[in-house]
Simulated assay, not measured.
Amino acid sequence: MKLDLQNIPRVRGISKEAFQRDYFVPQKPVIFEDLTQNWPAYQKWNFEYFREKAGDIKVPLYDSQPAKGRENSHGPAMKIKFSEYIDILEKGPSDLRMFFFNLLQNCPELVNDFQYPDLGVKFFKKLPVLFVGGAGSKVVMHYDMDLANNFHFNFTGKKKVLLYPPDQTGFLYKVPYSIVSMEIIDMDDPDLQTYPALSRARGFEARLGHGEGLFIPSKWWHFIKYETPSLSITLRSLPRSPKKIAEVLNNLLFMRNYDNLMRKLQGQKWIDHKNKMAIRKTHRHAGIDK
């Protein structure tokens, strides 16, 4: 058994009309090969540039350890200067990652290095976020709680991305009261004997190089592996339909708070219970007797 993955289409010179018609409205992923080539970031964004411009800023770093016991969520493993983090990345593989780092708040000068592409999309311009990872680091399969449409632009390295549309959720071992798959599953090398439903999910695979961008539609699942040290910026477009806005509010106001409350009350027992539910529900959906 192996994962059922298709390549994501690649485009160059796409018009906003074609993007809206072929990808945004039908909510299909696409890789932009040339959207960033006129950005200053295309020439400038490497680790030495960030060492110069943001090296003294203290940044929170996250590792691959899941939240345990009564922790609300997995907090930072450490907080160090950006320059010290770059030193770590340049020494070799590391699972330390910078996650959802607000560029506008922390490095406003760098906002001049990129542009919001003219794709007929209303961007949420208060939240351009930076993601940085060491070689071999991975991001667990998840979708975004705010259901944003994401435009993810990669620089200074290579990364692998797996995507699954919302209608494949039933095969992905979604953990109840969360927006993640089971954290024990490594989607880069999944154990399909233990988690056989994954082989029935129909997904997509992309590899992003310097300057390439990926459109991740709202509520699409994504797993990311940093194949080399790299940094990326994500520009976000928030949902506007009443149905999705209602779902976002439910995620933020009910689901997250209920999950945190149960973690405090039951600790690891709650986490173990959710994982068992994830396996049971997924196998029932897939018709697997196991």
Rank of each mutant, 00 (worst) to 15 (best):
M1T: 07
R10C: 09
V11W: 00
I14M: 14
K16R: 15
E17N: 07
F19I: 08
Q20S: 05
F24M: 05
V25P: 02
I31Q: 07
F32M: 06
Q37Y: 11
W39M: 14
A41D: 08
Q43M: 13
Q43E: 15
F47P: 03
F47V: 11
F47A: 14
Y49C: 10
K53Y: 05
G55Y: 01
G55K: 01
D56G: 06
K58E: 12
Y62I: 10
D63H: 14
P66D: 00
A67M: 10
N72L: 03
N72M: 05
H74K: 08
F82L: 08
S83C: 12
G92I: 15
M98V: 11
F100L: 15
N102L: 09
C107G: 02
N112Q: 12
F114E: 03
Y116D: 06
L130H: 13
V139G: 09
V140C: 09
M141L: 15
D146P: 01
D146F: 07
K159M: 06
P165A: 05
V175M: 01
P176K: 03
I179C: 08
E183T: 12
P190N: 10
Q193H: 07
T194G: 01
A197K: 10
R202G: 05
A206D: 00
R207I: 10
G209K: 09
F215M: 05
I216L: 07
P217H: 15
H222F: 12
F223S: 06
P229T: 15
L235I: 12
S237F: 03
L238E: 00
P239V: 07
P242S: 05
K243P: 04
K244L: 13
A246D: 00
E247W: 04
L249Y: 06
R256W: 03
N257E: 10
L261Y: 13
K264Y: 11
G267R: 07
G267E: 10
W270C: 14
D272N: 14
K276T: 09
G287P: 01
D289R: 01
